[in-house]
């Protein structure tokens, strides 16, 4: 894939310090239209700080984040969401006892038109359920038929599916997935990977954080190797093997000069 246009999401010189620990040290990041960029790195390399900075969960001390070339500043995850960046957290951030539809629209509920919405503040359940159903069907999660089912009655893979569908439904520009397959079995991981490719085919670029090298090499277009708080290199999974990637990430091998 060749990219001549401006990246959708960029980070330039991000710095984040926690006391004497520097989690991000002049870190850069690029995500172009229609691609999946995987972020890999050893524990403590600062990947989560980078992701949190881009999803609004952490405010960087220095540096800037550019969305479609324009500088943006996120103080909360809600700010990032308002700009079209959706994050699927490792914990999924869903309320187990509430229904799929409730969870999909949590924090951005639709109200009925007219006085019932404005005076009685009544939710437009029918419309929220319809949209939820449509989004799940679009992503091939047809086996979830009852949109009013509590999320806790779903399997791990289904929950992940709902969380991805929620992000895809509202993430107009970027979707960030944090360890989406970490808690899943082989079959369910497969389904979620298909889902990720499906979302990309809809034209939404994805940032994927994962420890699972086979998964990363299967779906990523480019791999951002994170080491000691900064971008070490960006590699094309077609040019390198998984053991190369691990070697870069742990410092066993020097990074290639240009990616």
């Amino acid at each position: 894939m060749t990219q001549s246009s401006t990246p959708i999401l960029q980070a330039r010189g991000l710095v984040k310090r926690y006391g004497r620990v520097t989690a991000l040290d002049q870190c850069d990041f690029d995500l172009h239209a229609g691609e999946i960029v995987a972020v890999i790195g050893d524990n403590g390399a600062g990947k989560s700080s980078l992701i949190k900075a881009m999803s609004g969960a952490v405010v960087p001390d220095e540096g800037e984040i550019l969305l479609e070339g324009k500088p943006v500043r996120f103080n909360t995850p809600t700010d990032a969401r308002a700009e079209g960046i959706e994050t699927v957290y490792q914990t999924l951030a869903m309320s187990p006892a509430l229904s799929i539809a409730d969870n999909m629209f949590m924090g951005r509920e639709l109200r009925k038109p007219g006085w019932r919405g404005s005076v009685l503040r009544q939710l437009d359940r029918a419309r929220m359920e319809q949209i939820s159903r449509d989004k799940l069907s679009e992503l091939g999660l047809m086996t979830i038929q009852n949109i009013n089912q509590a999320v806790e009655t779903l399997s791990g893979g289904q929950r992940q599916g709902v969380a991805v569908a929620r992000a895809a439904a509202f993430g107009s520009k970027v979707i960030i997935l944090d360890e989406p397959t970490a808690a899943l079995g082989v079959k369910e991981s497969r389904r979620v990977l298909e889902l990720i490719l499906d979302v990309r085919s809809r034209g939404i670029p994805i940032v994927l954080i994962s420890h699972n090298m086979p998964h990363v090499f299967e779906v990523a277009d480019r791999i951002h190797v994170h080491r000691l708080g900064k971008r070490l290199c960006v590699i094309d999974p077609k040019d390198y093997t998984m053991s190369d990637a691990v070697a870069f990430m742990t410092g066993a091998k020097d990074a290639p000069l240009a990616a």
Partner: peptide
């Protein structure tokens, strides 16, 4: 029937998840 009510349940269920959901 209101967003507030759904938020009450979400907060009781898992406050962190509710916060991250906005």
């Amino acid at each position: 029937q209101t967003a507030w009510g759904r938020h009450v349940y979400a907060v009781g269920d898992d406050p962190e998840a509710a916060q991250l959901s906005g």
